[in-house]
């Protein structure tokens, strides 16, 4: 598969990525050595889900496949699960357009 696998359990698809994908069900506390730094899982991360490799501030872009997949809604520490609770889409936001009163619709 595309990318690099760490410890047969975490897939980093591109150099630019700041998240890794769990390719196994991962327990809290599991540690990965990613390019010289240790990332310790702050919580369990199920198969297919993502965790942060680098610290992110609210509003920072989240990269997977070497591409932007959304932005952080809050600060995220390395090893934290990254999903819909702390990462949001920037596209197809008809809700925001509606909130702006549809002025730009």
């Amino acid at each position: 598969m595309k990318g690099r696998v760490f410890d047969e359990a975490a897939l980093v698809m591109s150099e630019r990525d700041n998240v890794a994908t769990a390719v196994d069900d991962l327990d809290e506390g599991r540690e990965f050595d990613v390019d010289g730094s240790t990332v310790r899982l702050a919580e369990a991360v199920p198969f297919g889900h993502k965790f942060a490799l680098a610290p992110l501030d609210a509003g920072d872009e989240v990269y997977k496949y070497g591409e932007v997949i959304g932005r952080a809604m809050a600060a995220i520490e390395p090893g934290e699960w990254v999903h819909t609770h702390n990462c949001e889409s920037t596209r197809g936001r008809g809700d925001l357009a509606a909130a702006e009163g549809g002025a730009d619709a």
């Binding site: 994908t21 990462c87 889409s89 008809g94 809700d95 357009a97």
Partner: peptide, 24 residues
């Protein structure tokens, strides 16, 4: 429709399977 695309994309099953956003 005046709503967030997230109401339909990604679907609940996509999200349970680890997909967070439509971009991903």
């Amino acid at each position: 429709m005046g709503v967030d695309l997230r109401g339909a994309q990604p679907t609940p099953g996509n999200q349970e399977g680890g997909l967070t956003t439509i971009e991903e």
